[in-house]
Amino acid sequence: MENINVHDAKTNFSRLLRRVEAGEELVIARGGKPVARMVPLEVDIARPLGFVDYTLPDSFFDELPDEELGAWNSGE
């Protein structure tokens, strides 16, 4: 891992970010002392869409009773 001082990291952030995207790990140092590490983010691109595995019951599509429809229509 290469140490990069804070000033160089600020000046060359985009370049360093490309290196990290390519798989490198870098250490940011202040006064020669390591304070942070830049590492590639592990992203699972095979993640399924959505966050809940739920199937609506068939009754979801049934008509609402008149009293329920009345409550929706009256704004109560």
Rank of each mutant, 00 (worst) to 15 (best):
T11G: 11
E68T: 07
V27T: 12
P48R: 04
M38E: 05
E24D: 15
N5W: 09
D66M: 04
L64P: 06
M1L: 13
R18H: 11
N3W: 11
A36Q: 03
R30P: 02
P57W: 01
L26P: 03
E67G: 05
G32C: 04
V43R: 09
L69Y: 07
F13S: 12
E68Q: 12
S14H: 14
M1E: 15
L26W: 03
D44H: 07
G32Y: 02
E42M: 08
P57C: 06
V39P: 00
F61K: 07
A9V: 06
F13T: 10
L64Y: 07
A29Y: 03
D62W: 03
V27W: 10
G31L: 05
N12R: 12
A22K: 10
P34D: 02
L16V: 12
R47F: 03
P65S: 07
D53W: 00
V6E: 13
T11M: 13
L56Y: 06
G23A: 14
F51C: 01
H7Q: 14
A22S: 12
F61G: 01
E68C: 07
G75M: 05
L64C: 02
I4G: 01
E63H: 06
E2H: 12
D53S: 02
V6F: 13
I4R: 00
R30W: 09
L64K: 06
G75S: 09
S74A: 13
G50S: 03
F13G: 07
S14I: 13
K10F: 14
A29S: 08
L41W: 05
L17Q: 15
V20S: 09
V39F: 04
R19E: 02
G31E: 07
T55F: 04
D8T: 05
G31H: 10
K33N: 10
E25Q: 13
L26F: 04
R19C: 01
